[in-house]
Nucleic acid binder design. Structure first.
Lengths: 117, 117
DNA sequence: AAAATAATTCAACGATCGTCGAAATAAGCC
DNA sequence: GGCTTATTTCGACGATCGTTGAATTATTTT
């Protein structure tokens, strides 16, 4: 992961609503969650949510697909792991054996009911 | 670590110059580095650097002490580890056994020459 | 005390951020 | 076709961001 990618991912997560959205998507697992459901769960206006999705998507932290009239957003664990790897890598330069790499995996393989925070 | 602390730390790291500063301080180890040395290493104006130090310090990622007319800044590994723990924790809810926690340690115990970038 | 060095403070600036309201687009339902 | 639902687009707004130049404070040196 490049430094600019890391900055983008950090910036994407460095905001209350977006961090909530991402955490919710992580808990929702790889199957993701429709935008409307996220909006009601976190009490964020739909248009504001779109704005945040754009930023998360720009940072590669989220994917979208259409399902009927719903947009299903899902966390990209690959990017999150790359970010964690980048951050730990920086801390361990010169002494890699002292550091434990971080791994981010979905909480559940099957979609599950998730409450807001 | 609280969510607001995590957002603060993420925001502090989500900027090119600040990420560079923090990485440099991590490599410098617990003994830290004088502000002027950082300024020349990264080619950042001293007043601009002060601005970024304030933000890093506000997020608890950095400490300062005075040494003569120099200000010595040092990375706070404790906070960085708390951030990494917070981020991985979010990814592992419901399946903690699937996740490896991240640890951030100083690269060297003794102060060493460090180049920019 | 005067001069030099190291860092901070302050006001200003354009740029980006996060939110809102209103309108537009997209897809399913009658 | 019209009607409803789901989401996005657009323009606007105040707020914060990152940088700069000039002035200031703190400390050491002579």
């Amino acid at each position: 992961m490049e430094k600019s990618d890391a900055v983008a991912a950090l910036a994407a997560l460095a905001q209350d609503n977006r961090l909530d959205v991402f955490r919710l998507l992580v808990r929702a697992g790889p199957e993701g969650m429709p935008a409307g459901e996220i909006a009601t769960a976190l009490e964020i206006a739909p248009n504001t949510l779109t704005f945040h999705f754009d930023r998360l998507r720009g940072a590669g932290l989220v994917t979208v697909r259409r399902d009927g009239r719903s947009m299903i957003y899902a966390a990209r664990f690959e990017t999150m792991n790359a970010l964690l790897a980048y951050l730990t890598e920086n801390c361990c330069e010169g002494a890699p054996e002292a550091c434990a790499p971080a791994v981010c995996k979905p909480a559940r393989s099957k979609r599950a009911k998730v409450s807001a925070s």
